[in-house]
Design a protein around this nucleic acid. Sequence first.
DNA 1: ATTAGCACTCGGCGGGCGAGAGTGCTAACG
DNA 2: CGTTAGCACTCTCGCCCGCCGAGTGCTAAT
Lengths: 346, 346
Amino acid sequence: MEAKSERALSDRQERVLKAIVEDYIRHAAPVASEALVREHGLGVSSATVRNEMAELETLGFITQPHTSAGRIPSEKGYRYFVQRLMEEQRIPRSEQLTIRHQFHQVALAREQWLQLAAAVLSRSVRAAAIVSSPQTVECRVKHFEALLMQDGLGLLVLVLQDGTVKQQLMQVPDGTAQEDLSQGANRLNSLFGSKSRREIATLDVEVGPTEDLLQRAVLSLMAQIDQREAINVYHDGIVELLDQPEFARTERARAIVEVLERPQTLRELFPVIPTTDGIQILIGSENRWDWMKECSFVLARYGAAGDLTGVVGVIGPLRLSYSVAVPAVRYVSKIMTELLGENGVG
Amino acid sequence: MEAKSERALSDRQERVLKAIVEDYIRHAAPVASEALVREHGLGVSSATVRNEMAELETLGFITQPHTSAGRIPSEKGYRYFVQRLMEEQRIPRSEQLTIRHQFHQVALAREQWLQLAAAVLSRSVRAAAIVSSPQTVECRVKHFEALLMQDGLGLLVLVLQDGTVKQQLMQVPDGTAQEDLSQGANRLNSLFGSKSRREIATLDVEVGPTEDLLQRAVLSLMAQIDQREAINVYHDGIVELLDQPEFARTERARAIVEVLERPQTLRELFPVIPTTDGIQILIGSENRWDWMKECSFVLARYGAAGDLTGVVGVIGPLRLSYSVAVPAVRYVSKIMTELLGENGVG
DNA sequence: ATTAGCACTCGGCGGGCGAGAGTGCTAACG
DNA sequence: CGTTAGCACTCTCGCCCGCCGAGTGCTAAT
């Protein structure tokens, strides 16, 4: 059996599998051999198809919900389908233009087009969509200065490695001199250089009260910066999910909606998405999360690799329309990358 | 019958009605007379309660789903309950503090606390929550200037009635003089004063090319300002709805989710909410929208009345827990008003 | 290797039935 | 006259059962 599953499928087996997957994605009902020859013009009899189906079942590509029902694709079947059989469905030129137009209309307000991306995707794929706000790499210190403005009041100027400059007022003990601050800053600068907030927080400085003060001020400012860039996750299209028969009882929908609305879990997912170009497809139990055993993801990164990137994609049942989802996600992520480049980092 | 319904309910009738509503809100099942005396200590027999129930039914405060089932509150019953019988449930001091703390943690990023408001509300009320971003009144011109920066390039400076100043570069025909611009601006200023964008757009100026140019520039800048302030609507807690038995079949959930995800409909609702302080409770068909026949809203405005305000509230089934929802919405809107005041308009 | 034919399996559906819950009514009671 | 015990009546819900039909797997023929 193991040996068999290594062998590639025959041409006809592939045609049958493809027909089953497409039919099931379309109609959400187990696919019968008769229906298959009738509607997919396979040019052979239903008996032959039945034989192939039996073979495909022992190979693990399809299953029957019960004896004497049609077949439905297994996860393995879906995977084979997306890797080898699927024909991506081109997005009509006119629709491409409408989408692009919508984006440019709200190009100035980032929050708006993140939400728009989710809306557009969920509508065209008819599944839920998620979009994370673009995230820089955690900010890192290059250098900082501490200036005395007046007695008891200092100014912290922080230069980050990417060149941005941030500043913040801070209280200092009365009587602190500019020299004290400069000396403290000098000592700390060599320690803090190119470190992230968490790394600095774990440093144990213990040189003196001024250094302590400066360290806390730097950390607080960095925290604000990291915070400002906190990942937001937008979602849309729950209503599309509710239309799917697999969610006719709400218990099924609950799990997936819970994930959409509590972004924490999604945030854990995002680092997994490769930074390289390309679409990531996760089917069912293909990963360690239990709650997505019965869901599929089609995800992509957008933005400049290694710099400012986010994740965009769709979530749906296993029976997701991959051939629509893949080009849609690719197209939307492309637009978002462009937009981010145009009026992005600065 | 009409006459009867005018008469106030007897003391005991009120107690019975209150018990029915509370019980039904808690258990989502028709309430029987026995259960009522058993669990609400009414001090009379079930037979007496049955008589009162019959009376309450002819008065239209409760109904039975079918003969030989318990009673459930009608819309009228809910309305009477919230107006006269409900005891608002105080939010525990500790919870108040946690909530306030959460808000102050993200006080700087408006988008974050709008989302947070929805999250907090939906969790504590166990229903869906909506929050609209604060919206200024449509911006209105006070005065504008047009300056010539260099040949072919002008600068438009626009002062709005609320005192904010906006500026934008604009192209002007080569050879245009400062004097041309000043004269045009002079003429238009008297026309545009205290007008909104739409009003200015419908003005037919027709004095000359310079005026035409200026009008278009002003409109374009105002459009950007109005646009930037476009209402966003955040929502959360769909998952709480899915937990309610009334949404066990997704068809019921669909309608309400659709509304939450397509903010257009909600935007139409918001102007209805009174600008004055106070909570607005909408129960079922109490309004012109069909899609919310079986939903209740508990809404409030936040922000400075007449200036920068938004709407916050919860949506749930008729069986919404009003006694929790009202104080929760009030408290959250209060916090948001404070936050908006602190680091708001500027 | 393909296909027609056929027996077999199993889920879904509708009908009938019994149990239980809850009411409305009536008659008795203070 | 308001309250209550008792009781008959109604209606839903869950259950069982048997039928129907869809779809398969197998066998034998081509």
